[in-house]
Nucleic acid binder design. Structure first.
Lengths: 226, 226
DNA sequence: TTTTTGGACTTTGGATACATTAGCCGGAGG
DNA sequence: CCTCCGGCTAATGTATCCAAAGTCCAAAAA
């Protein structure tokens, strides 16, 4: 056995939490929707206990909120809170980027470029799921050299939150080409070791996304409440 | 009933988690110590299930780590990770402070001053627990006007982590007088609306704490491994 | 004497059954 | 007719029990 062959090392609650997370991120479960443990238990063909554990996990991640004797519901963020999520991303990502840039090697830059290339092709093909994963990979690659385990975990959690809203409107956004150019420019600035400009652009990049999304979500919510 | 009188509104796992958290923060449970569910269950006089839930909570908070079929143990951070925790605090607190200062009112400043006064007296009396709580209150009061719910929650979680290490060495630190003066100065700069200097001082304040603690913890660990 | 394997014991994970609590609906009283 | 109290119901929270996984030790073989 050359490779590790880690066969199904995940526990039941973990698997269920992963599946539920995907369902929430994809929008299969809408904001504010109440979750009935029993229903889910039957759906997955397990008892309520793994479900509870899975929900607890998602609660810790902030994807569902878990009230005392009233069960769980999918979290619904206010517009202010959504804005906050993106501001946090901006703050943390810029910090990571700043620490990472001076330590990046030409190998890192190549890796980033490869991801970008693949992103662009998957963008043309309109494969959004793939694009999202690659986008995450690209940003991770940019911050890899900062070598900050805890900060990256934190960012991952916040990123999961923001993904919910990014995915909701990714198809509509129409800022794809814009993002493409910005990503290339980001990489170029990093390669030039222009830390300040690179971070500024990164923050602008996130802020623009935030503004676009906030408008879209505000419209959507206004329409929903008739 | 004029006041709220929320009697025992907490669920069992919540109470247990709170108690365990305190025990970990106080150092009653040492780093890396394995936790046996059954033992705790008997200790609290409940079944293992609420314990499991409590542990899961603490796992989400990062105070214990929960391996698949091997149970829980108190998390032990590397020196690098401890440094990271303080850097994160610095980053986030400065951001909150920056947003908060322009919005603070004279009432806020008075409230902060009151807390400081109480802190100083409890410091003289060497009541560390009280001092810790007040210290948290003071910082919270400084950031209150930023009105950032999610960010504050995040900071609270990170603060819980850093508290573990701050408490470990609070009695030894000997930088109490230093902290006292810095806190006053922090408040003065905020009142003068000198955002940049205030944030710079705040970051320096946190960074100094970090450096002191890292040295102390490094020494302690070196001594422990004989 | 050392290493490896098998089995017993310990500990956690999951299911079922029971207690508890909140939310709701109906009836009685003002 | 409205309000408030009380019981009913459905959902969560807790306990006990059983199964599975992991660890440790001892015995046997090299």
């Amino acid at each position: 056995m050359s490779a590790k062959r880690t066969i199904e090392r995940k526990s039941l609650p973990e698997v269920i939490a992963d599946d539920l997370r995907e369902r929430i991120l994809n929008g299969d479960m809408t904001e504010g929707e109440v979750i009935r443990q029993e229903a889910l238990a039957e759906e997955y063909g397990v008892s309520r206990m793994p479900i509870r554990e899975a929900l607890k996990r998602l609660d810790a991640e902030g994807l569902v909120v878990l009230t005392n004797n009233r069960g769980a519901s999918v979290t619904k963020h206010s517009l202010e809170e959504i804005g906050e999520i993106f501001d946090l991303r901006s703050l943390i990502e810029a910090d990571l980027f700043r620490r990472s840039i001076p330590l990046m090697t030409s190998l890192d830059f190549m890796r980033c470029a490869d991801i970008l290339t693949e992103m662009e092709s998957s963008l043309d093909a309109d494969v959004i799921d793939r694009w999202g994963a690659l986008n995450y990979q690209f940003h991770s690659a940019l911050y890899a050299r900062a070598d900050r385990k805890l900060t990256n975990e934190l960012l991952h959690r916040i990123g999961t939150q923001s993904d919910r809203y990014v995915r909701m409107h990714l198809s509509l956004a129409g800022q794809k080409d814009n993002a493409k150019q910005e990503h290339r420019e980001l990489l170029r600035l990093a390669e030039a070791r222009d830390v300040d400009r690179a971070c500024a652009l990164l923050q602008k990049h996130i802020d623009v996304t935030k503004q676009n999304l906030l408008t879209l979500i505000a419209d959507k919510r206004a329409a929903e409440s008739k």
